[in-house]
Design a protein around this nucleic acid. Sequence first.
RNA 1: UGGGGUAUAGCCAAGCGGUAAGGCAGCGGGUUUUGAUCCCGUCAUUCCAAGGUUCAAAUCCUUGUACCCCAGCCA
Length: 557
Amino acid sequence: MSETESRPTNFIRQIIDTDLAQGKHTSVQTRFPPEPNGYLHIGHAKAICLNFGIAQDYDGLCNLRFDDTNPEKEDIDYVHAIEKDVHWLGYEWAGDVHYSSDYFDQLHGYAVELIEKGLAYVCFLNGEQTREYRGTLKEPGKNSPYRDTSVEENLALFEKMRNGEFKEGECSLRAKIDMASSFMCMRDPIIYRVKFAHHHQTGDKWCIYPMYDFTHCISDAIEGITHSLCSLEFQDNRRLYDWVIDNISIKTQPRQYEFSRLNLEYTVMSKRKLNSLVEENLVSGWDDPRMPTIAAFRRRGYTPASIREFAKRIGVTKMDNTVEMSVLEACIREDLNDNAPRAMAVLDPIKVVIENFDQDKVETLNVKNHPSDESQGTREVPFTRELYIEAEDFREEANKKYKRLVLGKEVRLRGAYVIKAERFETDDQGKVTTVYCSYDPETLGKNPADGRKVKGVIHWVSASEALDAEVRLYDRLFTVPNPGAADDFHSVMNDESLIVIEHAKVEPYLVNAKPEAAFQFERQGYFCLDNQDSVEGKLVFNRTVGLRDTWAKIEAK
RNA sequence: UGGGGUAUAGCCAAGCGGUAAGGCAGCGGGUUUUGAUCCCGUCAUUCCAAGGUUCAAAUCCUUGUACCCCAGCCA
């Protein structure tokens, strides 16, 4: 696709422009810093495109850094999944992957430095007491009784913490700042806690782990990050970020800027809710095509370019926002309209018998793979006496607005002939099973010579040559735009978010389909082969997104 | 009067004292062997509200209002 050529403009890029113009920086260094405790979702994609996009446009660098300071919640599997997602989106990080845990020795050193400066102390208040001492939003906290322990003793105590001489929760290292600060995070925040946990990178080397606020700013400084971009909820934390940097002997001064997270209509983005969808088997897994995860979008048939374009279109601001699904859908349709080869598939088949076509003949038709892009070539599509068409494409009678096959009238078979419905058969329930037609052999690749107008065009496949395929039609997971606001999201789940069509009929050329590669099934939408369940002998297609359907609107009126 | 943030169309979003970009969605029309695509047209006399400054205000000032975030040894 042709991604919008113009460079995005947003308040962060304006800050960078100013910094560069004023000589505050000569180059730009950003980072994408996920905690490896889950799968990336479309909201992370926004952050990835922001950070890597800025690095690209400013000839700078963007690091991939795993913010792995809480081993209990993290797993090496997530780091691999995240690396894959970032690469899939089309980005390359600078040098090796970084980990906050790479800096545990240095972090420890800076903690000791704070203690030596009288700016940190070991506190033996338990969790409950710590909370009580912290005060409330409107009332100041009070000083910990351990706040005035001598530097020497704190040094010894911290050493004992490090050596595993205290139990988890027994004590913590706290920065000595201001228990009356209006910023809750400045009320002597805990910067190290005891955890006898095995770490996926550092093994059992440590039994104390640094907290986010202490770690992140120092990691940024160590890596020479110039602009540290994070989401809005860290605005208060910026005061602590700056306090730490200002009070340790480190030369670089990274700056933190905050932007708003992405919210998407009809889905949820919180890790907790996504996790329960998986845990409760409400979806098949983290990559269930209905999920908002990167892995799910990949499996569903979204392209990296479409996600990047989406990130560009939604912009970057500090405003709370909830983007409509239609923006995402427009991005993938735009890409796939240009790039997806066309094919024909019949999802709800009824038989058509062309009575004046030879019984055993298989005519090979050459059909264009793309209506306007000649470079995509043609393919061979077999035409036979018996075909399948979509059940909804035939009616015994209909008004002039219905441009499909009607008894006694003509319609064009896409890429083939004009046919006329002569009679039909139904089953016991009255459902049409077979339509007997005649075809006009003079209409292949041209209109009827006598000037008859045939305005309808329908898709079809050869009954004998078509392949069986399972087709999965996905829809939004929830019935309301903001399911996150519901008391119980279970009550607003869309029970028709997945419709499985077991026996769809697809044209034979689709046997060559590759996982995740898109096709447009003409008149229906964009589909790709499922990357998990499609195996030799069993084709499984996922609907990425339907075509715009103005007929549905007309019909609804 | 705890603090930190944000208010521009249905949804995103430009705008940075000189008279409201763009995208998505919608609506109307044209082309079309996909009811797709494509093309054309249309869509904020007004920027949360009310005052004020100014020749000129979405932009500056004042006072309000609404919404989001902060009291994890999570990130």
